[in-house]
Design a binder for these strands. Structure first.
Lengths: 152, 152
DNA sequence: TATTGTTATACTCTATAACTATA
DNA sequence: TATAGTTATAGAGTATAACAATA
């Protein structure tokens, strides 16, 4: 046997986790000096792309529970990157907006991560990367469906 | 724009996380009835593949810190799946062995996960899956190298 | 009655420092 | 002194129940 973990290596999930760990570690290191963590960064970019978005919709997009998003928005607001504004039409809801500072910090983080990923993927062609990303999406969709079916 | 998160979707790390979440959720659900979590399952399979392996070596393989492995082995031992035996040659070290029960439970979990993954990947050819796994490995290696370089 | 945001809480996974017993 | 295993502790990330304000 070539590897001491050859039995686990047949599992795509095991390989995905092993590939993810160093990627997440590097992304954490890139974001920390900007005062961001991965969840706050992701939220910041999505809010910037969708001004006025409500928290319940953002939580759904990020695949996280509503209560956990509260702390994320608290952190972004405390850092001056995001503002909550009470919705006029539905006064239960908050409309979320990125500040000028948040816009700059978010763009800076995104550019650094894009650059890092370009290094990680530099040996692959654009088409290979596209196929890779498409397969990731399909695996996730199939797994989500399998989870849903198992709950029946 | 097609998606509300199109800016993040350009990031492979974001897509990997989104693919991983439902896979991990399903794997958790498969393992829980067997009395296993993902780290204990992975340790169980690797110990079974390498009888007598020491904890420090196992921690390195699993890319986890030694202190966190202690609880993993504690759980496996409490469940009767694994035995610690004091090493004769180096009495600081534990040699790890899987029990007959642990062997059966581990095989059962592995078979169920293989089946689940086969469903997730069923639309892809064997060659596509191999390429996919090879790219995952390379991305992980490149990211690990980038992490190491950034620590210089 | 249902929904948005919130609080409180807990569990898993992970990371670091310091201890013990051996080497 | 260095290493294997351990203890204690802390921090992310995630999950559920229950509440107040509003619809």
């Amino acid at each position: 046997m070539k590897h001491l973990d050859s039995r686990l290596r047949q599992l795509t999930g095991y390989r995905m986790r092993r590939a993810m760990l160093p990627v997440l570690a590097r992304v954490n290191d890139i974001l920390a000096p900007l005062g961001l963590r991965r969840p706050t960064f992701s939220a910041l970019i999505i809010i910037g792309e969708n001004p006025g978005m409500q928290q319940v919709k953002l939580a759904e997009l990020l695949a996280m529970e509503k209560p956990n998003l509260v702390q994320v928005i608290d952190d972004l607001e405390a850092a001056g990157f995001v503002e909550r504004r009470r919705c006029a039409e539905d006064r239960r809801a908050n409309a979320l907006f990125v500040t000028d500072l948040g816009e700059r910090i978010g763009e800076s983080g995104l550019a650094k991560i894009v650059e890092f990923e370009a290094q990680c993927m530099s040996e692959f062609s654009a088409q290979e990367i596209e196929t890779f990303q498409r397969m990731l999406d399909r695996v996730g969709q199939n797994a989500r469906q399998s989870v849903a079916e198992s709950k029946d």
